[in-house]
């Protein structure tokens, strides 16, 4: 298979053809030992599109998102990010990761570094920017997520919501064109969830591409261009957020929505 034919395959459920494809996944399979976590996944994400992945736990949503930035190695199938095919070669992995920002469920901030140092770390070590320039960029993004006043503090001194916003700022500092969110609000108390979701909504409005695993159905409805429902390692149904929530076509999605809404 070559690049051209892959991208040209039309996705039947897409409401409109996006200008360009940001992420293209074809026949993706992922095994953990004998357990198949992902089964023949086909997914295309257009540039600027907001795609929400949802489904019961163990359905493979996180595995899928982690395969995209090679935190998990896929066993077969292809993943293309902005045209670069993700192989297991270090140079390909680096080139793909350069396009992606990742936000984890558990924040994964560096606990021994201040908030500012967390944000400048990659700028200085991966992009080799001088300290002053890195600080400027970091402060800009910290202000965008409303934690500029906490720059000198350590992560443990912040609330969960603030920590997750720092994590978002840290990812944005590298100016990725695609943001991946792996259940960004699942580890947060209900009060903090709102602050993080607001930041993500603001971010969605900037035209960045987003793939987000979440259980926040209200957020999905408001923000998503497209929702994807997964179960047992397969994509069961996908559609525009209107149709997804108001007129689900599969029984499994209907049952799922009844439980979570």
């Amino acid at each position: 298979m070559n690049a051209v034919t892959q991208i040209a395959v039309p996705s039947p459920v897409r409401r409109e053809t996006p200008a360009a494809v940001a992420i293209s996944i074809r026949k993706l399979n992922k095994f953990y030992g004998g357990f198949q976590a992902l089964r023949d996944i086909d997914l295309e994400v257009g540039q600027g599109e907001i795609v929400i992945l949802c489904g019961p736990s163990g359905s493979g949503k996180s595995s899928l998102i982690r395969c995209i930035n090679h935190l998990e190695q896929h066993n077969s199938g292809t993943i293309r990010v902005n045209g670069t095919e993700l192989t297991h070669k270090a140079s390909d992995v680096a080139q793909v990761r350069r396009q992606l920002g990742m936000v984890f469920q558990g924040f994964n901030l560096f606990p021994h570094m201040t908030v500012l140092a967390n944000c400048t770390f990659a700028l200085r070590l991966a992009l080799r920017l001088p300290a002053a320039e890195a600080n400027d960029i970091a402060r800009e993004y910290l202000a965008r997520v409303n934690v500029q006043d906490q720059a000198a503090k350590y992560p443990s001194e912040l609330s969960g919501g603030q920590q997750q916003r720092v994590a978002i700022a840290r990812a944005l500092c590298l100016k990725p064109s695609i943001m991946l969110f792996d259940e960004p609000t699942s580890a947060l108390d209900p009060e903090s969830v709102g602050s993080v979701l607001r930041i993500m909504e603001d971010l969605a409005a900037t035209g960045i591409t987003m793939v987000c695993v979440t259980h926040e159905m209200g957020f999905a409805r408001r923000v998503a261009d497209r929702c994807v429902f997964m179960e047992k390692g397969e994509i069961v149904e996908e559609g525009t957020s209107d149709r997804f929530f108001s007129a689900p076509s599969t029984a499994r999605l209907k049952a799922f929505l009844q439980q979570v809404l």
Partner: peptide
Amino acid sequence: GQFEAAKVLLVPQPATWLLV
């Protein structure tokens, strides 16, 4: 998650070990 965060931030391995 510390290793993963460093990876997705493209921090080179030696720096990850030494500083993270």
